[in-house]
Amino acid sequence: MKDLMMERSIQLFAQKGFKETSIQDIVNELNVTKGTFYYYFKSKQELLMDIHLQYIERLIENQETILADKTTSYPEKLHSIIFKLVHDIEKEGLRAKVFFREMRHLSEEHLEQIIPKRDRFKENVQEIIEKGIEAGQFRSDLPSDIVTLGILGMTNWSYFWFQPDGEKSDREVAAIFYKMLVKGIQSQ
């Protein structure tokens, strides 16, 4: 029931927004009582926190699996992470939308748990860039922190426009992003 409650809440938060969705909306959607809600969550804020934690922890777990692979080059690792981010939006678009759009509604206490995890994800991407520079696999004339923020900005905002059943697949969008990053957009 807890997982179902989270899934339906994600749908409501994505559709109506966190502030505009009441606990009553959530329980009505599931045809349960408020008591059922409070059995699993102390508050709507705690529910939002659980959604955020699940999302970012799964992203970090996938990312660290890619990082640990000693058989792939840094460009391949970067491509895999870009693909995972875009693919995740295809797979869990509403969860990504809630994560990015509704983070502003987390309490300071909850942000103190989420922000270090979000920063860790960013630092892992930056580490790939920096190690790729050291290995001569990426250009050394671009600051790794700005490159990292560019990658994350590009991929994270795709939740807003990417349509999984649209003209381009997640794999194609990730390949385009990767080519833009690694090869640039200037004609040769």
Rank of each mutant, 00 (worst) to 15 (best):
L181I: 07
A174Q: 05
K44E: 01
G150N: 15
S158I: 00
L47E: 04
I115N: 10
I23P: 04
D88H: 10
H105D: 10
M103Q: 09
I129C: 10
L53F: 01
A135V: 02
R104W: 13
E130R: 07
H87P: 00
G132L: 02
P116T: 02
K183F: 07
E7N: 06
Y40C: 07
M6C: 06
S9H: 02
H87D: 14
S9E: 03
Q45V: 03
V173S: 03
Y159W: 09
E102A: 10
S169A: 09
G153W: 10
T71C: 10
S73Y: 03
K168F: 15
I176C: 05
E130F: 04
W161P: 00
T155K: 04
L94S: 13
A96T: 07
Q63N: 09
K44N: 02
F100Y: 10
L67W: 08
V27T: 03
Q163Y: 12
K183E: 15
K117P: 05
T72M: 11
V32H: 06
D145I: 11
G184W: 11
V182D: 10
G150C: 15
H87Q: 15
L53Q: 09
A68Y: 05
L53R: 08
E20R: 13
V86Q: 08
P116K: 07
I114L: 07
L106S: 07
S73L: 11
V86A: 07
A68L: 11
S22G: 10
I129V: 14
D141Q: 06
V173D: 01
I146K: 14
Q54F: 13
S43I: 05
T36Q: 04
K91D: 15
E90R: 11
E134V: 09
S169F: 12
G17V: 09
K122G: 04
Q186W: 11
A14H: 13
N156W: 02
H79T: 06
T36C: 04
E64M: 11
E76I: 03
I23Y: 00
E57Q: 11
V182L: 15
K122T: 12
L59P: 00
E112T: 08
I114S: 05
T33F: 02
K97G: 09
T155N: 08
E76C: 01
D50E: 15
K179F: 11
Q15H: 15
L59K: 11
M49I: 01
Q137T: 00
M5L: 06
